[in-house]
């Protein structure tokens, strides 16, 4: 118990009695965490944009005017049963012409009002839960063509393929950049702590010569590393909290279609992750750095 008190007190003293080193390490940790967090948020925006793009993939089944409502409903529920399908919406002939009317309202040269009858077919619009399965679903549904309900199926296999390629590259690329960024953060933080520990290697030597066990030497440094990590994380999160609204506004204006989600849950997760990462890296970095001087 007393040793624990000593270790805690020694870590606290070590931090405050080497102010220059502590401030330098803490600021470095904070800066690196801000940078890594920025990349994490950007990556999340990117993944959301990718998901949004993939939601745009849909199939449209144009229906025969002669198709009976019961047949249409049966088809609709058959399609809904497919796990790749998120939702199926029925668009009647009237809704179709209304949409067209609204779309052409701004261009007065199209005179829809003069139409005697409605030439547009009713349709089923299929939204997909998994864009990757668009091709399979389209080919399955194509069997319905000419059976009296479905007149034509519209999918865009080439467009879907291109879109999926782009989203895959963006998704994997984003994660790769994030992982690299985390590695860089790890490297810089560990090295900063290593420099701070090396500057105090005389202290470690003296402790050894006076008969301190390796454990008694190591733990104050590990706790001190965690202290640097914790202060760095608090500093980084404060800076992010202060700067986030402005950055989020700019991002929303820049990419208005992407609904960036900064829900409290996400923010809590992010804060927790940053804090935990900083503590862990601080402790591990310090433990590893001291070890080099203990075995020397």
């Amino acid at each position: 118990m007393r040793r624990l008190a000593f270790v805690v007190a020694a870590a606290w003293q070590g931090f405050w009695r080497n102010p220059a080193m502590s401030v330098a390490s803490t600021l470095t940790v904070a800066l690196m965490l801000v940078l890594a967090t920025f990349f994490a948020i950007t990556n999340r925006g990117l993944q959301q944009a990718v998901a949004l793009l993939e939601q745009k993939v849909e199939l449209v089944l144009y229906l025969e005017d002669s198709a009976r409502p019961t047949e249409i409903l049966a088809l609709k529920s058959r399609i809904e049963a497919d796990p790749a399908v998120q939702s199926v919406a029925f668009i009647s002939k009237e809704q179709a012409i209304e949409r067209l009317r609204q779309a052409t309202e701004r261009s007065r040269d199209l005179a829809l009002g003069e139409l005697d009858n409605n030439p547009l077919p009713a349709s089923l619009e299929v939204k997909l839960a998994r864009a990757q399965e668009a091709g399979r679903l389209a080919s399955t549904l194509r069997r319905e063509e000419g059976l009296g309900v479905v007149s034509e199926i519209v999918d865009n296999p080439a467009v879907v393929d291109n879109l999926l390629t782009i989203t895959r590259v963006l998704s994997i690329g984003g994660i790769a950049v994030l992982v690299m960024m985390l590695l860089v953060t790890l490297f810089v933080i560990v090295n900063t702590i290593r420099i701070a520990v090396t500057a105090r290697r005389d202290e470690i030597e003296i402790m050894r010569l006076v008969g301190a066990s390796d454990r008694l030497i190591r733990w104050p440094f590990i706790l001190e590393g965690m202290l640097v990590g914790a202060f760095g994380a608090v500093l980084a999160l404060t800076a992010i909290g202060a700067g986030a609204p402005a950055v989020a506004d700019a991002l929303t204006q820049f990419a208005g279609i992407v609904p960036l989600d900064f829900s409290p849950v996400f923010l809590a997760q992010l804060g927790g992750a940053v804090f935990g990462f900083a503590l862990l890296v601080g402790a591990a970095g310090a433990g590893w750095s001291v070890r080099a001087h203990l075995t020397a």
């Binding site: 003293q13 070590g14 009695r17 080497n18 005389d202 202290e203 003296i206 402790m207």
Partner: peptide, 8 residues
């Protein structure tokens, strides 16, 4: 060189 802990 005494080898005192400088921060104590």
């Amino acid at each position: 060189d005494f080898k005192l802990l400088p921060q104590r």
